[in-house]
Amino acid sequence: MRLLKLAALGSLCLLLGACQNLFKPSLDEPLPARHNAFEHLRAGCQGEQCPLFNLDTLSFDDEPALNEAIDRQLRELARSQDGAIPGSLDIYEKRFLDSAQPGWSSYLQAKIREQHDGLVIIELSSYRFTGGEYGEPGRAFINYDRRLHKVLTLQDILLPGQEESFWKVARMAHQAWVLQNKLDEQDPNFSRDWPFQTTPHFALTFGSLTLKYDIDRIAPHSVGHPELKIPYPRLNGIVKPYYFPGRGVQ
């Protein structure tokens, strides 16, 4: 009897076009995430100087493309100094702990930054310390479109032929960031020594589009990972209206 009821419900939802709302979160509801976090020390090691590997990540039911993208991006953040990307996070963990010196550590994290308009914005972080004064931090974004079940590139969100205009607007956001933080006042040579550059890290955050920079890219190490904010009204005619907050979900 229960199977008959489910079959009848399935037929009804097909007629009404409501299957997604009945069986999956609708696009205006947050996509639930499964959290997976652990920290492993080198086997048999004891004490504060034991090498460690820490992973804090997410997975999503019914979104295999997003899960694959998170895994791939974390592995890219874990690439070796020669640029090689590990075949899996398990392989990376084993190689790191097997070769690590006392005090070495590696952290990888994926977290939800925002969800809105059928988009899931994932921010990814890494930090690897292998001696010296500083460790090696890394950052990345994933902009995932739940309607298309794909990770968006910059070209996906821009209107045709508008990439140059996009970076002109980003340059203006950089100038505003320098002024707001009084960086030229602190260092008269700041704009000369740390000029504007493009970045692969963008996020379709709700209040404004966010550009994030790797450390030592457009500012000294002490500044950390700078973020530039571009209000969406400045992107009229540049970004597809479909990706403006509030316009995507009908």
Rank of each mutant, 00 (worst) to 15 (best):
D216H: 08
A33F: 04
P195R: 11
P86M: 09
G161W: 06
Y92G: 04
H221E: 12
N36G: 03
M1F: 08
L58C: 07
K212F: 02
A69Y: 07
R113Q: 13
E48A: 15
D145P: 13
L158Y: 14
L6N: 05
A176W: 06
S222N: 10
Q250V: 02
R34G: 09
L183Y: 10
F244A: 06
S11H: 12
H225R: 11
A140K: 10
M1R: 04
C13Q: 09
E136W: 03
N36Y: 13
I121N: 01
S165P: 00
L228T: 07
F60V: 01
A170Y: 06
I238E: 02
L108E: 06
N36T: 13
K229M: 02
E123T: 11
A203R: 07
P200C: 11
Y232L: 03
D193T: 08
I230S: 01
I85R: 06
L158T: 12
F96V: 04
D117W: 04
M172S: 13
T198G: 09
P64I: 12
F23V: 03
A84T: 15
V223W: 02
A110T: 08
L183G: 07
E76N: 11
L159C: 10
A176K: 14
D117S: 10
F202I: 13
W104M: 14
I122N: 03
Y134G: 00
A69D: 10
H225P: 00
S105P: 00
V151R: 11
M172D: 15
W167E: 05
S80I: 00
L14F: 12
L6Q: 12
A173S: 15
L148N: 10
F166V: 08
T198K: 15
D61H: 07
R128V: 13
N189P: 02
L66T: 12
N67A: 10
G118N: 06
N236R: 14
G44Q: 11
N54A: 12
L77T: 09
F244M: 08
A78F: 05
Q155Y: 02
L228I: 07
A43T: 15
R234V: 00
I121W: 03
Y213V: 09
T210M: 13
G237T: 09
H116L: 05
R75F: 05
D184I: 04
S105R: 14
I157L: 09
E93F: 01
D193C: 01
A8F: 04
Y242C: 00
G47T: 13
E114C: 06
F129M: 04
N189S: 14
T210V: 15
T57D: 06
Q115W: 02
L22E: 13
E185C: 00
L3W: 07
G44I: 05
D98Q: 15
V239W: 00
I157A: 03
L183M: 13
N67D: 15
A100H: 06
C13I: 08
D62L: 05
D193H: 13
R234W: 14
S80F: 14
P200Y: 08
T210Q: 12
C50L: 07
S26P: 14
I142P: 02
Q46L: 12
R75G: 09
A69C: 07
V120A: 09
